[in-house]
Write a protein that binds this DNA or RNA. Structure first.
Lengths: 238, 238
DNA sequence: GCATGTGAACACATTCACAGCA
DNA sequence: TGCTGTGAATGTGTTCACATGC
């Protein structure tokens, strides 16, 4: 065992994916506690704010190798640093966005893409009418300049905000250029080019999940439109 | 048991959440098969295109009460209709978007929000400078007009694209106005107002999940920066 | 022979409940 | 006493493997 110094206990093994997905939420909450000069927080409080079970929160933090104090809680600043370290934040993460359409331009301006170390260094597009313009100071380059750009700026993260028809091709270009992870917003299944990490966000799908649940709540969907006229209350209180 | 007519078998019980999240992907793939005049597809083929295991796909479809043909596969048109029905698509879904900033405007123009029955009837904002303008024909109204708008247009879906500080308040307004489900893009935990369904998409969090995995792939994150120089190959072949 | 639908096994994540410590 | 960290129980989803049917 390595010496467990004052900086925290060594974490164990891999971190479950659902835990990873919750870390950014904890991070945000911890940041606002720091801003509010709160020094300490219990798992019950933080879990309530995050909308998760307290045991789940403690389990999540235990994966990071936390050092909460029984009877007191967690040190807000320390915990925030641990979460940041787990997420590999607190360093520079240059990003290139492929596709300078509505979504690409909006993402280039969004706070989430321009804070916490993230920095949009360029957009790329195929449209010559776009190339050369800037969005909030960020230049739009031609897609042919991608490779040079990625190397020069040390870009590791690529964002795909093109039409679905172009997504797979541009993902391959990004991977070839040296990008190591891709966030895809195009409504297409993007095969991981060369083992590059791909994560997709499908805006239409999110809406469709909602309509699914709305129909369910109404008692539809169970059959082909024939449904015993529901006895009033819906099944799920939540 | 109800008579299992030609339209499909009756589905059983509730549908698991991960299955629901995959249905939109299947839907998209089926639509392109229809466009390509393909009549039939096997679970193996469709699963490969969707990037999931074939058994998972069959299990997913079985929740819908499918009627595939052993030895042949699924009828593309029929299956597409079943997925659409499960997602409650093929009807009109008016949407209101709260927040006419970069993201709200981009969403109002995005295809995912304007096809498949979805229709953005209005954006609302607090900024008087925005009110009265239109985005691609969609009017920007004042947030005070929300209630009237929701009732008049029969809006069931609300989208929150405001700063985090306004998200909870605007979600409450949407719920009070009669919206039954909310898609939240603000980086905030939005408590479900009055039992309304809330689903959140956090753009910054998506990037952070990627940086987590990039650091992991490099062998970081396991300790506090001290790491046995990895023996060459990474753990995960994928 | 080939592909569906599903019982059973497995893998994983969540939650309970409590020992242990401040 | 209060709260953490975690073994054990539970709940949930995925995958295998095959009986069934075309």
């Amino acid at each position: 065992m390595t010496s467990a110094g004052a900086a925290g206990r060594a974490p164990r093994g891999r971190i479950p994916e659902p835990t990873v997905a919750r870390l950014p939420v904890y991070r945000r909450l911890l940041a606002s506690l720091v801003a509010g000069r709160i020094r300490t927080v219990s798992s019950t409080e933080l879990a309530a704010a995050a909308g998760v079970n307290a045991a789940t929160l403690r389990r999540d933090l235990s994966h990071l190798g936390t050092y909460g104090t029984p009877g007191t809680g967690y040190d807000v600043v320390r915990l925030g640093e641990m979460v940041d370290r787990a997420l590999a934040l607190g360093r520079d993460w240059p990003i290139v966005i492929a596709g300078a359409g509505n979504l690409g331009r909006a993402l280039a301006r969004s706070r989430g893409f321009t804070t916490g170390g993230f920095r949009v260094v360029a957009l790329v597009d195929v449209d010559p009418g776009q190339v050369g313009r800037t969005i909030e100071g960020v230049p739009i380059a031609h897609v042919e300049q991608l490779a040079e750009l990625v190397v020069r700026e040390g870009v590791a993260l690529g964002v795909v905000a093109t039409p679905a028809s172009a997504a797979a091709d541009v993902a391959r270009r990004l991977a070839d250029a040296g990008v190591r992870a891709i966030l895809n917003f195009a409504p297409a299944v993007v095969p991981s080019p060369g083992g590059v990490l791909v994560r997709s966000v499908d805006l239409a799908a999110e809406l469709q999940v909602l309509t699914f649940h709305l129909a369910r709540a109404r008692g539809e969907g169970a059959s082909l439109g024939e449904e015993p006229p529901a006895g009033g209350t819906a099944d799920r209180p939540q």
